[in-house]
């Protein structure tokens, strides 16, 4: 599998997405443009309610969108296992043990249990949760649940990983651990990642490129390359280059001070 594995490319142009029905109908994203190279890790950064999650939902194939929305040169027409999706709150099946949750996509592909469990053990080791195979999701902490979620998405070797504020609900220390874990996994299992966040530090720490979005209807207003060396560690956060990018991001995000729109979840 690894011989032919090529991470996804994304090509979005003139994309607009309308959400809601009747009088509550509104344009969440308008004339959106984005292109992502194979194997790139980009962060979509923007104020709450700007349509970041909406773009992600469309890439995952859960939302209907107008315009050009190509992944690997193909129009997105529905959800698919090679486009993995991770939400802010885990979506593990409460009625399946950790091993059956992680092995879910393999089971859907008809992989026999023995082979499936080998892969599950390998992925759980990768996210640092060896030995938790037989636990129920509700027996784990929030951070552990997100690790399981990550393992479950990664087991299918997605060529594109879509992450919607995946660490947003975790406490600060746990979040920093998870960011480091994500980078370490990404270095071992290269894939294209679109990471949505409103945390500037998180975006700079992770991304090859930060795309700043305007307020609703969301468009990309700036494309900031992050040329910080990899592998990255927490000391980076105090480096001059990091601070410079952070200042720039803050300036862009603050130009309309405090006008935060309520967060709109496209998939409710």
């Amino acid at each position: 599998m690894s011989g032919t594995f090529i991470p996804s490319t994304i090509d979005i142009d003139n994309l607009s997405i309308t959400l809601g029905t009747g009088s509550a109908r509104f344009t969440a994203v308008q004339d959106f443009r984005l292109s992502v190279n194979s194997g790139e890790l980009i962060c979509l950064l923007g104020p709450s309610g700007c349509g970041k999650s909406t773009v992600l939902g469309a890439l995952a194939g859960h939302l209907h969108a107008k315009g050009k929305l190509l992944v690997d040169g193909q129009m997105v027409s529905g959800p698919a296992p090679d486009r993995g999706l991770v939400f802010q709150h885990h979506t593990l099946l409460p009625w399946r043990r950790v091993e059956d949750n992680v092995g879910f996509s393999l089971k859907m592909r008809g992989v026999p249990r023995k082979k499936r469990n080998e892969e599950v053990r390998r992925l759980l080791a990768l996210v640092g949760l060896s030995g938790f195979e037989k636990h129920w999701p509700s027996q784990l902490s929030g951070g552990m649940q997100q690790r399981v979620e990550l393992a479950r998405v990664l087991i299918g070797h997605p060529r594109l990983l879509l992450m919607d504020e995946p660490f947003g609900a975790l406490d600060a220390l746990c979040r920093v651990d998870m960011q480091a874990l994500l980078l370490s996994i990404w270095s071992k299992l290269p894939t294209t990642i679109v990471f949505v966040t409103h945390d500037i530090d998180e975006a700079i720490f992770l991304a090859d490129r930060i795309l700043i979005m305007s307020e609703r209807p969301g468009r990309i207003i700036e494309d900031i390359p992050v040329h910080l060396p990899r592998p990255r560690d927490s000391e980076l956060v105090t480096s001059p280059e990091f601070i410079r990018i952070k200042r720039h991001c803050l300036a862009l995000l603050n130009h309309k001070n405090g006008q935060e729109l309520p967060r709109l979840s496209p998939i409710t």
């Binding site: 859960h62 529905g78 999706l85 859907m108």
Partner: peptide, 13 residues
């Protein structure tokens, strides 16, 4: 939870 359904579909259900 509709997110569980969305997620399961994404995983190829």
């Amino acid at each position: 939870d509709q997110r569980l359904i969305a997620s399961a579909k994404s995983l190829g259900a």
